[in-house]
């Protein structure tokens, strides 16, 4: 089995009100120095040899991320 990890992030040009709210919450906790907080998605896919990094990239492009607002990275780990 192989484990693919897809990380989906909002593009830098897209505002992230959720991240902004979390940043303020961190500051309310008393922590200083936080420049910015951006929230994305972490997706794990377990699969056999039928799937490859190339195919997972295809899947991410078609479904897991929306290219208008998001970017993604695919990493593979052996289980």
């Amino acid at each position: 089995m192989k484990k693919y990890i897809v990380t989906v992030k909002l593009k830098p040009s897209v505002l992230d009100p959720q991240g902004e709210t979390v940043k303020r919450a961190i500051e309310h906790l008393g922590y200083k120095g936080v420049e910015s907080v951006r929230i994305g998605k972490y997706i794990e896919i377990l699969a056999d040899e039928d799937l490859s990094t190339e195919k997972v990239t295809e899947i991410a492009d078609k479904l897991l991320a929306n290219p208008v607002i998001e970017t993604f990275e695919v990493k593979m780990e052996d289980e």
Binding site: L15, P17, Q18, T21, V68, I69
Partner: peptide
């Protein structure tokens, strides 16, 4: 064309 984001006030 375009995409929808969460409302700005969440």
């Amino acid at each position: 064309p375009g995409a929808m984001l969460t409302n700005k006030d969440l």
